[in-house]
Write a protein that binds this DNA or RNA. Structure first.
Lengths: 122, 122
DNA sequence: GCAAGTAGTTACCTTATGGTAAGTAATGAG
DNA sequence: CTCATTACTTACCATAAGGTAACTACTTGC
């Protein structure tokens, strides 16, 4: 990790350390929309992440208290992930971010179809 | 980068690719509160980031169109960074995140002073 | 004429991160 | 008896990311 340990300075740094990093917020976003997903379902929605890394992210989110891991010892095993109460508190933020994302995406599309290059400034 | 290129799938992935990653959202958070900061000021507020990495993050944010770089050829040089119009659109999201961060921080402090260990579950 | 000050850049090296492939457990199907 | 299934774990290796130190430019102050 680059963002060091938590509990040092401002709360913002601490929360960023928990939810930032590759894939992590996207996982939260998926779970915040579907309330329960199996490992394989998450994996299918994120084809570019390897099982190793996905496991790692899920473990970290679990130890931060943001997601629950529900292991059912069926054969083959069933593991469901869902947001904790704390995890659901991020829903509003993630939704807000998604709205911005959609807006920018639309703007960029229009720019693109208008013939302009790629980068939008100012 | 791990989150690959942009413009593939959903807008969320694209925006996360731009603002995610170590330090980046914190830089945006700083700029979204102070509307203009010199390189050295950002650096002072983030003592753990090296000049090399900070430069890299600022360049990437600039090329994403989220911040402006205003280089004044004084001696010694003055370089001011500020959010672009697009960059300011993240203010609400960052503020929302900060509110959650502060709430969790308070909760964790109370748990801590109540004697409980470290990790909060469910 | 030497140091200071800002905002970097560059080279070099170490560490962290991530991918791939193989293995594991338990059981039901064929 | 073997395969398929799920959700991993482990070992091994390649690449990416980041730190440190040194260096640049230009002018003012001493």
């Amino acid at each position: 990790m680059t963002e060091k340990n938590n509990h040092n300075q401002c709360p913002m740094e601490s929360i960023l350390g928990q939810i930032m990093g590759p894939w992590t917020p996207y996982i939260l976003w998926l779970l915040s929309n579907e309330d329960k997903l199996r490992f394989g379902e998450i994996s299918a929605r994120m084809p570019d992440i390897s099982a190793k890394v996905l496991t790692d992210r899920l473990r970290k989110l679990e130890s931060s208290g943001l997601i629950n891991r529900d292991y059912q010892p069926t054969v083959p095993p069933t593991v469901n992930y869902s947001l904790t109460a704390r995890g659901t508190e991020l829903h509003g933020v993630l939704e807000g971010l998604n709205k911005v994302a959609i807006r920018w995406d639309e703007e960029d599309r229009q720019q693109l179809s208008a013939g302009k290059p790629v980068i939008a400034a100012e």
